[in-house]
């Protein structure tokens, strides 16, 4: 039960962070990707801030011997699915202004562009899932 409440609070904070940072707004995301136009550096600072605090979490987790923190850290090599998958994702991100997190939050707020993105996103995940052998 405690772990379910923990995950729920984590989801709430994650969503709140996306809203407060403005990352649920596709115009701000596209503004960051628009290097040849009027560049908005906001997304870069959101990432830097998020990474810094996640790093604290990673450090704290490393000091614990609790099995709940034993995240599988086995590093696989940098392979083609990783690079090609990321490139395909980047194209979709640029076209829509949405990555998965903001799409979920903005769709929950019934923002129509996010609802359309979610339809495509779920189809893409399901189709790719069929090819995966994990």
């Amino acid at each position: 039960m405690k772990s379910i409440v923990n995950a729920l609070i984590s989801g709430l904070l994650f969503g709140a962070g996306l809203i407060i940072s403005g990352m649920v707004n596709p115009a701000k995301v596209i503004g960051f990707l628009d290097l040849t136009g009027q560049w908005d550096p906001s997304l870069g600072l959101v990432m830097a801030s998020a990474i810094s605090l996640s790093w604290v979490g990673v450090k704290l987790a490393a000091t614990r011997s609790d099995p709940a923190c034993a995240v599988d850290q086995t590093s696989r090599p940098i392979d083609k699915p990783l690079i090609w998958g990321s490139i395909v994702f980047g194209v979709g991100w640029g076209l829509s202004g949405f990555c998965p997190g903001p799409a979920v939050v903005a769709a929950s707020d019934l923002y129509w562009p996010a609802l359309v993105v979610m339809v495509g996103l779920l189809v893409g995940l399901a189709v790719a899932g069929r090819f995966q052998t994990e």
Partner: peptide, 19 residues
């Protein structure tokens, strides 16, 4: 950006530590 990013980082840490 700083505040929103911090919340995202705290959320990720919470999920890592608690789950």
């Amino acid at each position: 950006s700083l505040v929103g990013g911090a919340l995202i980082g705290i959320a990720a840490s919470l999920l890592l530590l608690g789950n």
